[in-house]
């Protein structure tokens, strides 16, 4: 029993130590005098690597998720003769939940793991030490642009995901299952509120973007610089990110839609 408590205490200490370290790393990379010209160039490079390269998986998954929603929604709604409401169902579930959450999960798998592996490899091949020895702070040079790129990309990717998925749902419901075109769009338009639904969804994905990228860059920076260590770190990024996304989603949903706010 004593051992269990001891173990728990040890794990708790370790947990807080990690959080503290990660916070310090994050703060020391993003606080400081910005170098606008260079910073912008580095950010654009990373936006491409983190954001643009994640587009294919986001778009493909978006289409499929939308199509499945259309199909599932239709088969249920048609029993009550309410298949006209399919547009509303698809749009609301996407902008409120599925867009931010699935977008973030895909982002963690595609971009988060890539960030961790890249930073871990730079550490293992002594590139980070090399920078330090040239009198350049790797936190500002390597970590900061990657962090901001992730932070900016995910909300945009989630919006693209939702938009594409709505179109996927439209293809199934209207083109294939013959739901009325006008009813599809007008029901959607009348039920989706910009502030209540879309903006809250965007806020969610901003929070997820912050968390996922933070976890990814920290895991890379703190990884054990061996091939085994980088493998573990990459796995941890995906696992922790997924858990944090789902946990944070519950909290945010409770605050936004659960009447807690």
């Amino acid at each position: 029993m004593l051992k269990v408590i001891q173990h728990l205490g040890h794990r708790a200490l370790h947990f807080f130590l990690t959080i503290g370290r990660a916070t310090l790393i994050l703060l020391s990379s993003i606080i400081g005098r910005p170098r606008l010209k260079l910073g912008f160039k580095l950010l654009v490079e990373q936006l491409y690597a983190v954001g643009v390269l994640s587009l294919p998986i986001i778009i493909c998954s978006g289409v499929f998720v939308g199509m499945v929603l259309g199909l599932q929604g239709y088969t249920t709604l048609v029993r009550f003769g309410a298949e006209q409401a399919i547009g509303q169902l698809i749009a609301l579930s996407l902008v409120r939940e599925l867009g931010p959450v699935i977008g973030a999960l895909l982002f963690a798998g595609r971009a988060g793991s890539a960030l961790t592996a890249e930073i871990g490899l730079m550490k293992a091949t002594e590139q980070l030490d090399g920078l330090q020895l040239m009198g350049i702070d790797p936190l500002r040079r390597i970590i900061a642009p990657r962090f901001w790129a992730g932070f900016y990309s995910l909300p945009l990717l989630s919006l693209i995901f939702s938009a594409v998925a709505v179109y996927g749902g439209y293809m199934v419901a209207v083109e294939w299952l013959n739901v009325d075109d006008g009813a599809f769009w007008s029901n959607m338009q009348s039920s989706v509120d910009f502030h209540e639904d879309i903006l809250n969804g965007v806020i969610k994905s901003i929070v997820f973007g912050f968390l996922v990228t933070w976890i990814a860059v920290y895991q890379g920076y703190a990884s054990v610089p061996t091939s085994e260590g980088i493998g573990y770190a990459t796995t941890r990024t995906v696992v922790y990110s997924s858990l944090v996304i789902l946990g944070a989603d519950f909290v945010l949903t409770a605050v936004m839609f659960g009447g807690l706010g």
Binding site: L121, M122, T125, E126, Q127, D129, G130, Q132, L133, M134, G135, I136, D137
Partner: peptide, 29 residues
């Protein structure tokens, strides 16, 4: 950081930046 500019270090792995070419690696500092 100032002191390190007076120092060069040759790492065992070379520590070249893998994303840029030889010229840019040397031009970097």
């Amino acid at each position: 950081m100032r002191m390190r500019r007076e120092m060069g270090m040759l790492f065992q792995s070379g520590a070249l930046f893998t994303s840029i070419n030889v010229f840019d690696n040397i031009a970097f500092p």
